[in-house]
Write a protein that binds this DNA or RNA. Structure first.
Lengths: 291, 291
DNA sequence: TAGCAAATGCTCACAGTGAGTATTTCCGGC
DNA sequence: GCCGGAAATACTCACTGTGAGCATTTGCTA
């Protein structure tokens, strides 16, 4: 039995939504997500993430949540095993040169437009997936052949593309640089996909986007942020209905803004008790209403 | 900047359902979840969990999934920081003395009966939660005052009880041994609650319980396992309807069993493609059907 | 043979949700 | 000052999913 020498590091997927663009903090070539060693002066992992993110990037993280811990052997360096604990962080910032556009790093995840880049990936995928099982998987993950597109499956889509050799870092990758955009270090694109999946999942049961919006906002702004994260347009009228019905989520401030280009819009703010992180969605089990 | 010396260990929440009892592997006094150091001969973390679980307990794990990584300072020993990577594992076994009954360690999580133990906890909680915010939290998590009980909030309920000093390991705990059952080491009860939350969450979008059932089974058996995990009874007819509608989940084998005590029941098996882990549920966003 | 137990079959009402139409109210340009 | 565009806001409608309950089947056991 061989005990491993271990080094531990934190890796952060820091996202921000600026208009219709989704940004992630990453720098260098190949691109690295911000990361740093685990230190003893961090009270907790979360505190560690907040601290080094602020030090390295100058951005204060609002929402922080653990994603996944990686420690596969291929991350091992010189006899010491590397344990990477990845975190998702949301912050509010304008996209400058510290930020990368997520939808250039995972182009197939943006379905807001007519998705020409997605089509390119899909065409290559179809060639790879001739057999039944692969084909079903493609259909399920990419929402074709009668299946629906699910934004939150970003990680599984990445994994499928990796298997198919359609992202730059695949072992079997050939000429795919135009499909997956800029090179990313190690498995950082996978970690990014994990973060995107997570934030989209959270979006489903509660618009956990208040970290990405100013104090007050219009429903149109809120919808835009949601669409930016989901990578997909939503039905405007129904979106407002859903948000407004979700009592205890937002409330009108009473003020209006005229800066929308059309009819003036009511301003809203998130209600305080939303901040106490109400977790999780309704069950799908047929549970009796009574009792 | 102080770099931490780090030790890494794996901790497993291994669950099994035996009839109406939910079992978790734990031994010793106080009870320890099975755990072991991270070793270099493990290809991956998952492989490591499978290996040491099999070595320590003799049980082969079916489903395995990472839960959470803990590394708070209070887990630190002698200058070396301990990073605990916890995993959920499901297996099929009969409850013998290696197993503990989950609903004795988290008694308030069992709502299948008239829940006298849950009432005891709730009474203490109400005394603790007089103020508005606390009261709302209690209502939300414990499904009182018009709110519904959500099985998958097990972790948040544990955390609330911990804050309220109503579990044995709370810093502010008084005479609560009768509420939370046997003592558990470190934060192992929290990790157990995390595992329970996770398995219940997964249950919502897909009955990921085939690891807990034999090759073939009746819908009644399936329902019993689901109820055991969820800690809650479900509506029988609607449960069958849900399962049967969920095409591609189960299929009848064509055989019947007479061992049910009533009318003979059709036997079912899980369909093969379920095993390829179709992730995640339908979105709650009002996304247009067309396109 | 009666009665029980569990499985199975079927109906119904209602809430939630996707979708579409219509109306209001500002701005900018002419 | 008037007109068209843009966005916000308001309402309606059909359909489906889901909670609930009633009814029937079919074995076993007393």
């Amino acid at each position: 039995m061989t005990l491993a020498g271990v080094r531990a590091e934190l890796v952060a997927v820091v996202l921000t939504a600026d208009g219709d663009r989704l940004g992630v903090l990453a720098a260098g070539s190949p691109l690295h997500l911000p990361s740093g060693p685990l230190r003893t002066d961090h009270h907790s992992l979360q505190a560690g993430v907040r601290a080094f993110a602020q030090e390295q990037t100058g951005h204060r993280l609002g929402f922080v949540e653990q994603l996944y811990t990686f420690a596969d052997l291929d991350r091992q360096a010189a006899g010491e095993r590397m344990v990477s604990i990845s975190y998702l962080g949301l912050t509010r910032a304008a996209l400058d040169d510290g930020w990368q556009n997520v939808y250039r790093l995972l182009p197939w995840e943006d379905r807001r437009t007519d998705a020409s880049s997605a089509d390119a990936v899909l065409a290559r995928l179809r060639r790879w997936a001739r057999s039944g099982v692969r084909r079903e998987r493609v259909a399920h993950l990419f929402g074709v052949d009668g299946e629906v597109w699910r934004p939150e499956l970003a990680l599984q889509r990445y994994e499928l593309l990796w298997e198919a050799g359609l992202v730059g870092e695949s072992p079997s990758a050939a000429d795919v640089s135009e499909l997956s955009g800029a090179a990313m270090a190690l498995d950082h694109r996978r970690i990014l996909a994990t973060g995107l999946s997570r934030v989209r999942s959270k979006l489903q049961y509660r618009p956990v986007v208040f970290e990405l919006l100013p104090e007050t906002f219009t429903l149109g702004r809120l919808q835009q942020v949601v669409e930016t994260l989901a990578g997909q347009g939503v039905h405007k009228q129904n979106f407002r209905r859903a948000v407004e019905q979700q009592h205890a989520l937002v409330e009108p401030t009473g003020e209006m803004t005229h800066a929308t280009g059309g009819r003036p819009a009511r301003l809203y703010r998130f209600r305080g008790d939303v901040l106490t992180e109400r977790e999780q969605a309704g069950t799908k089990l047929p549970i009796p209403r009574s009792r």
